[in-house]
Amino acid sequence: MNKKYLLTHTALALYVVFALLPIVLIFINSFKSQKDIFDAPFKIPSTESFTTIGYQTVFNNSDFLLYFVNSLTITSVSIIFIVLFGGMAAWGVSEYKYRGRILLSLFFIFGMMIPVRLGTIPILELLQSLNLTNTHTALVLVYIAQGLPFSIIILESFIRDIPKEIKDAARCDGVSETDILFHIVFPLLKPALATVTIFVAIPIWNDLWFPLVITPADGKQTLTLGIQQFIGQFITDWPTVLAALSLAAIPPLILYILLSKQLIHGLFAGSSK
């Protein structure tokens, strides 16, 4: 038993070093000046070369907190609806048999098979006609539509794994389908819901294209868009960019840690009959 423990931890630790080393590099380089980043990228900043100029520039020269809040709002609201509507649709598509069910399932998956930027112009025209350009609502609507396919395909798979007996028992007791979905199935899906949340949140959080063309107005920019001002055509302020993007990686990380508890919850929920 001991040998297995040792092997497991060694293997994992080795991989973690590989996974984290570049990230540590990003982090330590965010505390250097541009010159020092390229002079000695692998060296930890000494007491002389340590500088918070990158972080200072981020907060002084840009509305970093505002961008942060914007991204937070847009991402959170989008996730809530993607998970909610996605779960409902996944249930509707995998639980009941009716004609066209498979086609409907395929229809939802189409969304993952096409480059998302393809439909930008009609989306813009539509939003323009609804007077929604330069709003956060517009981005939320677009992200919901884009996140649903992934949400549905994942949740479909996990719903299929729920034992039939649980659902049939509830039906015997006269519980309505809606109540089964929300009170029995959703709690059982916690690991899947947590998984979907994380996978869907990250691309939305890091997205540049749609905020750029739909909501570029001052005060409305997302984090990724707002940071672009430090990336010029010819001049890139790397300490600032690294500082900004390091900070930007924190909310997804926190979200992940928070949701980890949900994932563990699933262990006990899934095993109880």
Binding site: F81, L84, F85, G86, M88, A89, W91, G92, V93, L104, F108, F110, G111, L118, G119, T120, I121, P122, I123, L126, L141, V142, I144, A145, Q146, L148, P149, I152, L181
Partner: peptide
């Protein structure tokens, strides 16, 4: 169950 997802998906993704 299917309505909300279908609505958003069709209007803001499929149609464009």
């Amino acid at each position: 169950f299917l309505g909300p997802a279908l609505f958003f998906y069709c209007v803001f993704f499929v149609y464009p």
